[in-house]
């Protein structure tokens, strides 16, 4: 393991401290070292947007705290849900009196901890509603959609909900549009190598040289199939086919495309994927209205990429295009 760390079990603490120091124009730490909040939070009368999840996915989740995006974030250990207390403190930090929308990914730990945090906040008279992202199309079949994991599509959910809250949507409206955003979003990943949790010290799983896993999860959950590695064109085709199989997207649709590296894939390869994708979507008569490309939701040092597509209507389009500022995503 070749890493730039101090102590393996202090990776989260050390990196969050540095992140806060580097981005004081956007955010600050709170009394709970596992919660950071936007400089604009709480805004009186605005619905607070909260998320949280395990570390190791940077810039997710902390990188989406900012203006017109996420108000406060709960930070977990590497690949492990934040505790109920961390989620509860993030909700408190985001509460401007108009309720809090907690928008997070579908994982067993996050579900339990958020559930407990929502109960705690209820006792304090703070209303919290949730949307659980389940955009990973490869993680369960369509008829078991409730089992699907949340992956990079969460970024688009936060973007939409953050803009909606800034525009004065009330809590129920924010929840409804966040749910619509994630219902209109599908993602799929491919993994070309494993990843190593620093405190574990060896790779989480194994991908043989020359192989790739289609449908790999954000924590190295093994994919749905292992195949011989192929060209970017063919890999992009496989990812797109996996997404189109759900029949959410049709000819004539306008979409947002988000391509994220998983941590160790060179950024230029993401543009090779995008180049292939543009041609394929052209052929399907699907129009790309917006694109976000980069290391936007990673898995430590995993090699590979995820493709996310969101189908737009007028409301989603306006909210996606609204200005926002954070280290992970900005629009001007």
């Amino acid at each position: 393991m070749q890493r730039l760390i101090n102590r393996p079990d202090e990776v989260v603490e050390d990196s969050v401290r540095g992140y806060v120091k580097a981005n004081q124009h956007l955010l600050s730490s709170t009394d709970n070292p596992r919660v950071i909040k936007s400089n604009w939070s709480p805004t009186k009368g605005k619905v607070g947007i909260v998320t949280g999840g395990g570390s190791g996915h940077e810039p997710a989740f902390i990188g989406y705290v900012g203006k017109n995006l996420v108000d406060a974030v709960a930070i977990g250990e590497i690949f492990s849900s934040p505790s109920a207390k961390h989620f509860a403190d993030a909700m408190r930090a985001a509460n401007g009196g108009a309720g809090v929308a907690c928008l997070y990914g579908n994982y067993a730990g996050d579900n339990m901890n958020v559930k407990m945090a929502v109960k705690m906040l209820k006792r304090e008279g703070i209303e919290v509603k949730t949307v659980v992202a389940n955009d990973d199309v490869a993680s369960a079949p369509l008829d078991e959609k409730h089992k699907r994991r949340g992956v990079a599509g969460e970024i688009l959910m936060w973007k939409v909900a953050g803009a909606a809250a800034a525009q004065g949507y009330d809590l129920d409206q924010v929840i409804a549009v966040a749910q619509k955003a994630i219902d209109n979003t599908l993602s799929v990943g491919i993994g070309l190598s494993s990843c190593t949790i620093p405190d574990v010290g060896h790779p989480n799983f194994n991908i043989d040289p020359g192989k790739m896993e289609i449908g790999i999860g954000h924590h190295g959950e093994p994919g749905v199939s292992v195949e011989d590695i192929c060209s970017a064109d063919v890999a992009t085709r496989k990812m797109l086919d996996t997404i189109l199989h759900d029949e959410l997207f049709a000819s004539g649709d306008e979409v947002v495309v988000l391509i994220s590296g998983l941590g160790a894939t060179p950024i230029n390869e993401l543009y090779i994927v995008y180049d292939s994708l543009c041609d394929m979507l052209d052929a399907h008569k699907i129009t790309i209205e917006e694109n976000f490309i980069g290391n936007l939701f990673t898995s430590l040092d995993m090699m590979g990429a995820t493709l996310t597509m969101m189908k737009l209507d007028d409301e989603l389009k306006q909210l996606v295009q609204a200005p926002c500022q954070s280290t992970g995503l900005s629009k001007f």
Partner: peptide, 13 residues
């Protein structure tokens, strides 16, 4: 300690 500081699945369980 498990509720407040650990999280994951094992914290609540």
């Amino acid at each position: 300690t498990l509720f407040n500081d650990i999280g994951g699945s094992m914290g609540p369980i």
